[in-house]
């Protein structure tokens, strides 16, 4: 097992390198640059800027310098658009935000989505099942860019319970930390919750109808043992392979949540950086998401082995 983990980590290094080179090339292939503005900069001004950021160096030198700074100094460079800040600072400010609301969204989606799925499977074709399925289809059909404005309408304008967006700025803030968390978590978790519920339900049903469960029943095992010991674990495998990437998706934020609810997370930073051609920020967040994806895929693989004794590495 340890050997497997080490091998996977060793493999991650070339994967990240390839990711960097590919993103770098693709990003530069897009028309326009960070300093392409509505009012065109005079050539001399542009030259000064390019010289300052090393954008006038040959392409290979630029990639080389970039990699060198990351490997030796863990420095992802300055932002070209948010010029007071470096990429390290942007990620250090934005990532904790998305990590927080992403984590709680994940918890909510897993607990409620998983719970609904299990319940629906156990009570298949009863009103409870229909309700759970109906709810998850409804939630799936409610994208977060519709959800967010509706939440603001209800909780801020209608009830006046929650701030209409923003993030906790420290002591002296008129609202509590959790007040800022409620709407982002609901908006982000809903569609994940629906997917998890449907996935859990169908996976549970499949296992419940398999031969070894029939055997267990025939043996006269109590229902509780059948469900918790024999059904749940195998039924979780497809759910877990969904949860790995879903977790990464959630903690690296959602552009919709950040845009509509002004949370200041890196989801918006990422999309804005792409639109602004803020090269260094695009690269920084791409690498972060890449590394997290590799990490969580590894965790999922380790979990497989732990859940299903038939899987060995």
């Amino acid at each position: 097992m340890l050997g497997f983990v080490l091998r996977r980590i060793a493999m991650a290094i070339p994967v990240i390198l390839i990711l960097i080179v590919f993103s770098f090339v693709l990003m530069r292939a897009a028309p326009g640059g960070p300093f392409t503005k509505e009012r065109a900069l005079p050539p001399v001004v542009l030259e000064n800027i390019n010289a300052k950021y090393g954008l006038d160096d040959p392409f290979l030198v630029q990639i080389g310098t970039y990699l060198k700074n990351i490997v030796f100094h863990f420095d992802f460079g300055p932002s070209f658009v948010y010029q007071d800040r470096t990429v390290n600072q942007i990620i250090a400010e934005g990532f904790p935000v998305t990590l927080t609301y992403g984590f709680w969204s994940f918890v909510l989606a897993v607990v409620i989505g998983g719970g609904l799925g299990i319940l629906a499977a156990l009570k298949q074709n009863t009103w409870l099942d229909y309700l759970a399925v109906g709810f998850s289809i409804g939630a799936q059909a409610m994208p977060n860019f519709i959800m967010a404005p509706i939440l603001v309408l209800i909780f801020t304008l209608g009830l006046g319970w929650l701030p209409g967006g923003g993030w906790y700025t420290g002591p002296g803030d008129p609202n509590t930390y959790s007040a800022y968390l409620v709407m982002p978590v609901i908006a982000l978790s809903t569609s994940y919750l629906a997917s998890i519920a449907r996935l859990t339900r169908s996976s549970m049903l499949e296992v419940l109808h398999s031969n070894f469960i029939r055997t267990a029943r025939a043996k006269g095992l109590p229902n509780r043992v059948i469900i918790f010991r024999h059904t749940l674990k195998p039924a979780l495998i497809p759910v877990i392979s969904y949860l790995g990437p879903a977790f990464v998706g959630m903690i690296t934020g959602s552009v919709v949540v950040d845009m509509f609810l002004s949370t200041g997370g890196i989801g918006k930073d990422f999309v804005q950086a792409a639109l602004n051609r803020d090269y260094s920020v695009i690269m920084g967040i791409t690498i972060l998401v890449g590394m997290l994806t590799i990490l969580f895929n590894l965790i999922v693989d380790v979990l497989y082995a732990w859940i299903d004794p038939r899987i060995r590495y």
Partner: peptide
């Protein structure tokens, strides 16, 4: 100065007195 990207949400928050 509150950053609110969406102008409709901004209007809702204006209505709410924020």
């Amino acid at each position: 100065a509150l950053v609110i990207n969406d102008e409709n949400i901004a209007l809702t928050r204006y209505d709410a007195g924020e």
